[in-house]
């Protein structure tokens, strides 16, 4: 799933180039948003979804390990301080 998520993010970066709406000033979304702008607003929303997927499937486990280490160190320090 990690490879798929990163693959989709790379695909999104490619889709960002968007040469298919390059020359379209006629199509309006909701009657007022030019298609070239609406498409890129969509890219932003899909980016948020894909980064949510990355947070779920590609989370760096070593970062959580640092947290556990420092929690452990803090509680050891506390215990030491009490004794």
């Amino acid at each position: 799933m990690k490879a798929v998520t990163y693959g989709l993010i790379v695909l999104l970066a490619i889709l960002h180039q968007d040469f298919w709406w390059w020359d379209d000033s006629d199509t309006l979304v909701f009657g007022f948003v030019p298609i070239g702008l609406a498409y890129h607003a969509g890219i932003s929303m899909v980016a948020a979804l894909l980064w949510a997927a990355a947070v779920k499937f590609c989370w760096p486990a070593d970062a959580d390990a640092v947290e556990e280490e420092s929690d452990f160190a803090a509680s050891a320090e506390k215990a030491g301080g009490r004794s």
């Binding site: 970066a13 960002h16 968007d18 890129h40 890219i43 980016a47 990355a54």
Partner: peptide, 21 residues
């Protein structure tokens, strides 16, 4: 024109989050 959004905003949406992550 509207190309400025793709140029500066949606690209930043993808790349900034990539840098954070």
């Amino acid at each position: 024109g509207i190309g400025v959004f793709g140029l500066m905003a949606s690209a930043s949406g993808i790349v900034h989050s990539a840098c954070f992550f």
